[in-house]
Design a protein around this nucleic acid. Structure first.
Length: 573
DNA sequence: GCCGTTTTCGGCCCGACTGTTTTCAGTCG
């Protein structure tokens, strides 16, 4: 699929144009890149079927960009992109990822100091060459250094949401081979960790050579790093590695247990085995030379004297002890989710109508869906004002009549903005009329800890605010959480009956696993929402569910596992 | 460079905040 490659190029062209001080064109390229990125169909196929005209049917793609795409399909290159790369030989994506650095600052840094990449940037900042520049200062220099440090910590790890769909499609391809008897993902991907270093796949096969040959010739392979009978490693075009291992049938379970990890979990389980007079390895659980378990994970855990431990829990956070005392959480499943209360429609910046969203929700088997559009402070998302919210209410009432026969209900909410003082940007008398209210922080993210905590607490004390969206504001690999006294937040959430969101968006996953577990211990209720801005994002619910599982949450902790009547009981009004 | 119930040109990308300035440019959501 070349869509992502092309999107990346257009994003870069957009940055180049911005550096050149050209207005509006960068916006056009960004829009086209965004469309391509989210396109379901391969742009090559679209071109093959309908030519240049079909390309221009893609939203944000006109004559010029269609020509660029055509040029790329035919020659593998785009001239103006090559020209810019020569003129400004910069690692633009690397540099713009540093928070506070945009195209204009990058241009100055390149012209005055010859900064081309992150390494140059760090060198210049450390030797204090940046602060004397016009328009820069001590604080900017410091922020740059902090930004670089943050990026370094996250190096080489991609988001779960980027990798899982690719890995699952490879899994499907391999599964279709008749030589493959059993197959599973392993490693951090199977544990649904929020970021993934590389992908591990385990296979049982009597003809490993054929499986390895097939795997090494997959379309997404950029380079084969190693290829043998039991292990093949490849580097993908997407920039991550996949290891495929073939293991004997009789030790499939112990191998899966071993390669799923985590490392700390494995150390603990091996210690437990030794205490019981066994030896645990990827080849099986042994008593002396005799194998006593290994075919399935279940029998391995059972032989070790514990309940089966779900992969998401295997982080050495007390799961083995809980497993021996029958105290593991009852695992939450995607099918337990009965609705999604954080969805944006085309009334604000979203893409689809309320009716379209409702129809997808019905198809998913949901009992309800909540529409929670942005409100007026967020101009760029076309946030709604009081009057528009009331108009929207009328539309939803009409639609609800239509959907009565489906036993399905649309709930009307909104996602208000929490201002600096903890108030929100919609009047209480309108909030009162809605089924529920979500409130979130979208501005002034760098407040001090005390102020930020007070800001959120004031919002939670508002009797009209039911749910706090993405409570800690992090963007994985890109932005730190707000500074918050999270214990106080949990205390006030419990006191006020405020629900905390587990946002399923793969770059948020906010609350994170650790906080989910804390919230559960505090008795704070949570809700898993997708924050979908278009209908296909409604399918990202699985990421929120696996995050909740990693946080030991059970059905009773998550309010949208409840039917609509019970759900409404958890809200404040 | 794209787009159109404002339709082939003239809008689009607004407003707050930060860090730098001393009236504002750059960045972010």
């Amino acid at each position: 699929m070349k869509n992502k490659e092309l999107a990346k190029i257009f994003y870069e062209i957009s940055d180049f144009l911005e550096i050149d001080g050209i207005s509006f064109k960068p916006y056009a390229y960004k829009k086209a890149a965004f469309s391509l990125e989210n396109l379901e169909e391969d742009v090559f196929d679209i071109y093959e079927k309908g030519g240049n005209d079909a390309l221009q049917d893609i939203s944000g793609v006109g004559e010029n960009i269609a020509n660029h795409i055509e040029e790329y399909i035919k020659t593998g290159k785009i001239k103006i992109y090559e020209k810019y790369k020569k003129k400004l030989p910069l690692k633009i994506d690397e540099l713009t990822r540093v928070e506070g650095l945009g195209p204009k600052k990058i241009k100055v840094l390149y012209q005055k100091l010859g900064v081309k990449n992150l390494k140059d940037l760090e060198k210049s900042a450390k030797s204090h060459k940046i602060s004397p520049l016009f328009g820069f200062g001590d604080k900017t220099e410091n922020n740059i250094l902090q930004g670089i440090e943050f990026q370094k910590q996250n190096k080489g790890r991609l988001l779960l949401g980027q990798i899982l769909p690719i890995a699952e499609s490879i899994l499907e391809e391999l599964k279709s081979l008749k030589e493959v008897d059993k197959i599973s993902l392993a490693g951090s991907l199977r544990r649904r960790k929020e970021t993934i270093g590389d992908v591990d796949i385990l296979v049982v096969s009597k003809k490993p050579e054929q499986v390895m040959d097939f795997f090494a010739s997959l379309e997404l392979v950029k380079k084969v790093l190693a290829k043998g009978k039991t292990k093949t490693s490849i580097h993908t075009k997407e920039g991550f590695d996949i290891d495929l291992r073939v293991v004997p049938e009789e030790s499939y379970g112990s191998a899966l247990q071993y390669f799923t990890g985590s490392k700390d979990h494995n150390i603990i389980t091996r210690k437990i085995a030794i205490e019981k007079g066994f030896k645990l390895s990827e080849y099986g659980l042994f008593k002396g030379n005799k194998i006593i378990a290994g075919k399935t994970e279940e029998e391995v855990y059972k032989a070790l004297g514990m309940e089966y431990i779900e992969p998401e829990l295997r982080e050495n956070q007390g799961e083995t002890e809980a497993g021996m005392n029958n105290k593991l959480p009852k695992s939450l499943e995607l099918k337990d989710i009965k609705g999604d209360l954080h969805c944006h429609s085309n009334w604000n910046g979203g893409e689809n109508s309320i009716e379209e969203i409702a129809n997808v929700a019905i198809k998913k088997g949901y009992e309800y869906i909540g529409i929670s559009d942005h409100t007026k402070f967020l101009r760029i998302e076309n946030g709604l004002n009081e009057n528009q919210l009331l108009e929207q209410d009328e539309e939803i009432k009409k639609l609800n009549k239509k959907f009565e026969k489906n036993n399905f209900k649309i709930l009307h909410g909104c996602e208000t903005n929490i201002m600096n003082d903890g108030s929100v940007d919609i009047k209480d008398e309108v909030l009162e009329k809605l089924d529920y209210v979500i409130a979130g922080i979208h501005s002034n993210l760098k407040m001090g800890k005390k102020e930020m905590t007070e800001r959120l607490i004031t919002a939670m004390k508002n009797p009209n605010i039911d749910i706090i969206s993405h409570p800690t504001g992090r963007l994985i690999n890109r932005r730190e959480e707000y500074q918050l006294d999270f214990d106080r937040i949990l205390k006030v959430a419990k006191e006020t009956g405020t629900i905390l969101e587990i946002n399923s968006s793969p770059d948020r996953l906010d609350l994170k696993d650790l906080y989910i577990r804390q919230a559960k211990e505090f008795g704070v209720k949570m809700i898993i929402n997708t924050d979908a801005h278009k209908i296909n994002q409604l399918s990202q619910m699985n990421y929120g569910v696996s995050q909740a599982r990693r946080g030991w949450a059970e059905k009773e902790d998550i309010i949208n596992t409840k039917p609509v009547k019970e759900l409404l009981n958890y809200l404040k009004h």
